[in-house]
């Protein structure tokens, strides 16, 4: 079920994309690759990373990353802090240069053609870098210049962005006077001013309270419905599960698994998880017993969670005691595959 905010976003987007229009040909890029990949079918992936490595001194932040993102897909890049998500995002905008490997965005090579790519891509940064002393409208106007929105479309683009952010009545309000949620909405729509084909969101809801976060999910859902490709890094399991067509689990600078959230859960955690509170013998004894029957477990504090518990034989269940049952989720998959935890 979509949240309250999600429906609002959809209404705004649906309204905005109607109206008179003219053709606007960009031609072809210097590499000869198509600039209208969007209209050429799914042959050219929105993002293609092959063997990408990024080192900072002795630390390897991204370690042989392979990633394909087809056009029109919302891909959640899920991983704990330090997994390499932000470095990957920076490499996609050429603010960080890969030491090894190949990056192609919308058919163009990065960093060689990164400026071309950035004209067709919107980036929502992790850090709020709005100009606080300026108004909402001025912040958007500033970026309409930077994104080179044609002069005669600038006003409309700004109005649209403000509608999208539900800030139409706040155009003259200084950013300093906006709430955290409003600021973040402004930050997101700022990246959509030029109607990008691909949107990168680096932890778009980090630090926001759950209500505001849920409100922001609406815009991502709306973008997905519009066919915009979205790569969203997050360390919120629920966010990745809820918004992504596919999730790529990232740990130690590489993708450890990827797929539709439901498929990943079904493959690695089954349908049900049973949580057992161990007796005086400790969690190790429970784990030994369960592993002996070929089941996978994960620990949450002192509790031992048994995955694929729907297949647990009754004889074993009797020996383990009374469990707490819950549906398996993406966190179970992540912890199982990486041994690490995310929020």
């Amino acid at each position: 079920m979509p949240g309250r905010g999600e429906n609002q976003w959809k209404i705004v987007l649906t309204g905005v994309y109607r109206g008179p229009m003219t053709t606007h040909d960009l031609g072809r890029s210097p590499s000869g690759s198509a600039t209208r990949t969007r209209n050429e079918g799914p042959a050219v992936p929105a993002l293609l990373l092959r063997g990408v490595v990024k080192r900072f001194g002795s630390l390897t932040a991204v370690d042989g990353l392979d990633l394909d993102v087809p056009q029109g897909v919302v891909l959640g890049l899920l991983g704990p802090n330090g997994a390499g998500k932000s470095t990957t995002m920076r490499m996609l905008t050429a603010q960080s240069l890969a030491d090894e490997g190949e990056i192609r965005i919308l058919g163009h090579e990065v960093p060689a053609e990164s400026k071309w790519v950035r004209a067709r891509m919107g980036v929502v940064p992790q850090h709020d870098n709005l100009d606080e002393e300026l108004t909402v409208e001025q912040n958007l106007r500033m970026f309409s210049y930077l994104y080179r929105v044609p002069r005669h479309r600038r006003r409309e683009a700004i109005a649209r962005a403000m509608r999208l952010a539900q800030l139409s009545d706040r155009g003259a309000t200084q950013v300093d006077d906006l709430s955290g949620g409003m600021r973040r909405r402004l930050l997101i729509v700022r990246a959509l001013l030029h109607r990008p084909e691909l949107v990168l969101m680096d932890e778009p809801t980090v630090g926001l309270d759950p209500q505001v976060r849920q409100d922001l999910w609406g815009v991502i859902s709306a973008l997905r419905e519009e066919g915009v490709t979205v790569l969203m890094s997050t360390h919120y399991i629920e966010e990745a599960e809820r918004l992504s067509d596919e999730v790529a689990l990232m740990a130690g600078g590489r993708i450890v698994e990827r797929g539709a959230p439901a498929d990943l859960v079904a493959t690695y955690a089954g349908a049900t998880v049973e949580e057992y509170q161990p007796g005086p013998e400790g969690p190790g004894a429970v784990e030994t017993l369960v592993h002996g029957h070929g089941f996978t477990t994960r620990r949450t504090g002192t509790t031992v969670s048994v995955l694929r518990a729907e297949k647990l034989p009754d004889s074993l269940r009797d020996r383990l005691g009374a469990p707490q049952r819950r549906a398996a989720n993406l966190e179970d998959v992540f912890v199982t595959l990486t041994g690490e935890t995310v929020e």
Partner: peptide, 14 residues
């Protein structure tokens, strides 16, 4: 129409 609108609003980078 939506794809056309997006094409129409794409920035001019020559």
């Amino acid at each position: 129409l939506r794809q056309q609108a997006r094409e129409d609003a794409r920035p001019e980078v020559h």
